[in-house]
Design a protein around this nucleic acid. Sequence first.
DNA 1: CTAATAGTGAAGCGGCTACTTGACTTTCGC
DNA 2: GCGAAAGTCAAGTAGCCGCTTCACTATTAG
Lengths: 98, 98
Amino acid sequence: MDIGRVFEALGDPTRRAIVERLGARPQSVSQLATPLQITVTAVAQHIHILEDSGLVESSKVGRVRTCRLARHGFDALEHWVRDRRQEWEQRLDRLGGL
Amino acid sequence: MDIGRVFEALGDPTRRAIVERLGARPQSVSQLATPLQITVTAVAQHIHILEDSGLVESSKVGRVRTCRLARHGFDALEHWVRDRRQEWEQRLDRLGGL
DNA sequence: CTAATAGTGAAGCGGCTACTTGACTTTCGC
DNA sequence: GCGAAAGTCAAGTAGCCGCTTCACTATTAG
């Protein structure tokens, strides 16, 4: 799971909006499209990117695809931030120790 | 400090590389440019975006601008991830309680 | 069966953005 | 002071990406 895909996914405001709405509850593609004022096709494309990044997963039942948040992407995000912060603090410690 | 700017900043692979290199130690603009195989001008543009996002800060001494990581952006990132995760777990709890 | 609903796939367009070039300013070394 | 080094600024280009349209499939409702 590539952290690059995660950041590229969340770099787009529409996808961030989708993620934040999915935080409330799982939703279908057209439910997501309605308040966003964009085509269902566009939403489907975003969902695909979000799935590739590991932030979202979806399953199709009948003709409805339901999308929900996934752990993978968020785990990767949290790890990346933690790593940077750790690196940062280690460097400050070394400087303090001089 | 807008979380949107943070994600847009980190959405670009070159800027992610800059951030990761700055994790090791503060560096000048041209030091950052060398291994990236891009112009000093391009790096300066990236630095500007990274500063706007709160991930990097820089100061110029003489003719050298030294860039280092900043806390603001990383704090914003961590908060955002924490909020999503919290929302996610709350929802799972509610489902479990049914 | 028919119509409507939910989504998929391919193809195209427009705007944004990452990067370059070239001219210029400021600073440092000799 | 002169030239090299470190950045900055403005302008231009090329490619990507978000979105649309249109045609199509699959599922559900009446």
